[in-house]
């Protein structure tokens, strides 16, 4: 991910090591969190093969998936702003990202409740578990974004917190990428 961190000054060896440590740890975290998503994709095929419930509306799904993608783009803009140490823009971008995310999740749950699946169907139960797992990650990610936003606007962005504020955006982008995969898997194939 973004390796071109611009700083007012060059980092000394110790700070560079600290930054590497944070990056490394964050990468390990992402790697470990890919596992549950791989399992969710697997679960879908174990339970229902490539069957797609007719109650599922691809168009609505596409709308909120696109919203999620846009939120990933705003999150990317947030990373850029964070790297520039532009705390105002960073905070603005996280608010925008959160709002887009909320709209998308509300659409997602609306679709879920409106086309109430038989949760005891092979397809429905996998879908339910997947949505539930995604929403839990979503909430965790929101907390991260919120903390980044608060830090950016309260104490500003400096070398000590630039990575962690950026990381909350990066986790968000990771999550939206995972959703795109789940969307394709659950709505099409």
């Amino acid at each position: 991910m973004s390796s071109h961190v611009k700083s007012s000054r060059t980092l000394n060896a110790e700070e560079r090591m600290a930054l590497n440590t944070s990056r490394g740890g964050f990468t390990i975290l992402i790697a470990s969190q890919i596992v549950p998503f791989v399992m969710l994709v697997n679960l879908r095929y174990i339970l229902s093969g490539s069957y797609v419930s007719s109650g599922l509306d691809q168009a609505t799904g596409a709308v909120f998936t696109i919203l999620f993608i846009i939120s990933a783009i705003t999150a990317y803009a947030g990373i850029q702003a964070t790297n520039r140490s532009d705390s105002k823009a960073s905070a603005r971008m996280s608010v925008l990202t959160m709002v887009l995310g909320w709209i998308a999740v509300i659409m997602m749950s609306y679709q879920f409740w409106m086309h109430a699946f038989q949760t005891d169907g092979r397809f429905g139960e996998g879908y339910l578990v997947t949505i539930g797992a995604f929403v839990i990650y979503f909430i965790a990610s929101l907390v991260g974004l919120l903390s980044g936003k608060m830090r950016a606007s309260r104490v500003g962005i400096d070398d000590s917190n630039r990575f962690s504020i950026g990381a909350s955006f990066k986790f968000w982008i990771f999550l939206q990428l995972m959703w795109v995969v789940l969307y394709v898997v659950y709505y099409f194939i």
Partner: peptide
């Protein structure tokens, strides 16, 4: 998230 800054 999984990162730390120097303790101030």
């Amino acid at each position: 998230m999984a990162n730390e800054e120097p303790q101030e």
